[in-house]
Design a protein around this nucleic acid. Structure first.
Lengths: 333, 333
DNA sequence: TACATTCATCGAATCGGTTCGACGATGTTC
DNA sequence: GAACATCGTCGAACCGATTCGATGAATGTA
């Protein structure tokens, strides 16, 4: 493979001149630049990433850490992956995707060996064990999901509390007084998925303020449990007039379940939920819902991370909550 | 960060000795090794990946190329990503995931800059433009999906022809003589998704041999088109007694569609399909189907790729077709 | 005309590893 | 006890870039 030395020889200049021509950090005469460009073209030269990384201490790679849990709905996670990947590429970064089950070990491995310039952690839990490893690293990180301790890290997440209040308000305003709430599976709570209880607690609190009934339940993560549990929930609360579903797997099968029960939305039951537009399109979900904006979230996380890579004390660390937006789809009455 | 030089100084030996202690390529005395280990531990030393890559020309990273098309069902693709990622890590490799829309450019970029030791291409089409870039690269590649020209590349795919024959045989054996076939969306054919026509052609040919009727249709990729088209298909062939669905998006919504039409499986209609066990579980699909084995496929691709990385002329290039296996779930009569 | 700038380029040092050849000390073999 | 291996270690070269300081030529200014 052609090196910068080969290019230099072919163009009759020194290696440093070629390097400056490449980076534009010093001025180069018209003629030499042309000769260099030509040499690069004929030799098919590309800078060696490892060598450049060694010299500059910059790899132009961002680590993306995630793990697939059985209790998560894969299509939902994919949206974040894609968002991060796309946003990173726009900024000139590639993505090193790590799905290790040993999260802290993975963070340590890729940061301390200098494989990446920064790290994005998906699906951060309340006591995420990866955070210690991240704090010990030279490289900055951006979290998607809210941990207990946000010190020294940048956090991006949807404002689940506000989302819950929005939905409760919406239903309350329409006159609903008995509302079913389907949360993520119990296992997500146990694991420390803070978004789950942030949403539930806010919904419960809001309902209490209005003096209305809210019936919280856990969803299931795998079929046929999902349909079964939804049926059981509906059976146990025949008086409820509305339902808030905060669970991707459950909402995806809800249309089928309701159809089977002969329940018409919104005539017999009002339904609201929480999902992204794309997700709704894939699964033909006709429900009024808060938009979860995975690409906004992924993009903001990456943008912020890149800024911090380029300037480690770019700004105080942030915990940024995306504003929820309600998309009315007419599933409430 | 501690370098190998720091370790050497702390242990009172030369850098080369530390390197040999690390790699075990030359023998080291017990005491020296202990001192080195201790120095490494107290300094928290990790080899710098860039420097090592520069010296050894090995990055221990595999490139994973994929693109999300609107006409593809994301959960299906995710299975392959996860399989490749897991298998790679087992072999000591990390994954550089590239979702560029400019596939050939991405292949060129990561290979010619030596960011990766090898490349896995997902979802390879008949005339995949990434192949030229791959052939021009120093690094070996493994394809998932069958291109027209398999020269100089290793190919891994399900044997879609055999899968189709298996399913037709199964239905024929049960006495079905009029069979609906739902293929992937037309757009997948246009784009060169060879698996689509390999399956369809084999099914049609097999049916012809038996002298039975097969009615081929294209599926849709986005709701509400999917349900609508399935209904239209069923309306147009009331005499068909069986249905072969070769499309993830369609099979995922089929239960709802059939339920709505009051069609009972297998009493009113026999249904067979093609999907992985995990996929079937996620979507509660009760159909007899050929297992698509994404993790087997991903794993084999990675294993073969790693062997070829370590020995470029390890074996003649292969086109390996995973044997389809029929999983009987009782959706036929 | 002399001096200060700016421009274009070069050489050398550096980043952090790996690896080859050499070398002294020990251990074997006949 | 001479010849020969083997063991453990070191120094130097090398991988392929970037970057700093220096330098000569061209240009501007007083």
């Amino acid at each position: 493979m052609a090196t910068i030395g080969d290019v230099a020889r072919a163009a009759g200049v020194s290696r440093s001149t070629v390097s400056y021509a490449l980076s534009g950090k010093r001025s180069i005469s018209r003629e030499t630049r042309d000769r260099i460009d030509e040499a690069i073209a004929t030799l098919g030269f590309t800078v060696n990433a490892g060598a450049r990384a060694l010299a500059t201490s910059e790899t132009m790679v961002i680590g993306l850490l995630l793990e697939f849990h059985d209790d998560e709905f894969p299509p939902a996670m994919l949206q974040y992956i894609l968002a991060v990947s796309t946003a990173a590429r726009e900024k000139g970064y590639d993505i090193l995707m790590v799905t290790d089950s040993d999260g802290p070990g993975a963070v340590k491995r890729i940061t301390s060996s200098n494989m990446v310039d920064g790290v994005v952690l998906l699906d951060v839990t309340h006591d995420d064990p990866r955070l210690d490893a991240l704090r010990a690293a030279r490289q900055p990180g951006a979290l998607v999901g809210l941990p207990r301790d946000t010190q020294d890290v940048d956090v991006f997440d949807l404002d689940f509390g506000e989302a819950a209040r929005m939905l409760v308000d919406h239903l309350y305003g329409l006159g609903h007084r008995k509302i079913i709430l389907v949360s993520p599976p119990r296992h997500v709570f146990d694991r420390g998925g803070a978004y789950a209880w942030r949403f539930r607690d806010a919904a419960v609190e809001r309902a209490a303020r209005y003096g209305i009934q809210i019936y919280p339940y856990y969803g299931e993560s795998q079929q046929p449990g999902i349909s079964r549990s939804l049926n059981a929930i509906l059976d146990s609360r025949p008086d409820a007039t509305a339902m808030i579903v905060h669970n991707d797997a459950s909402i995806a099968v809800l249309p089928a379940v309701l159809h089977e029960r002969g329940v018409q939305v919104p005539r017999d039951l009002s339904v609201v939920s929480l999902y992204s537009q794309d997700f709704g399109r894939s699964f033909l979900l006709p429900y009024t819902a808060v938009e979860t904006s995975p690409d906004k979230l992924g993009r903001e996380a990456v943008q912020h991370l890149v800024r911090r890579i380029n300037d480690l004390d770019y700004a105080p660390t942030v915990a940024k909550f995306i504003e929820p937006e309600l998309t009315i789809r007419g599933s409430t009455a």
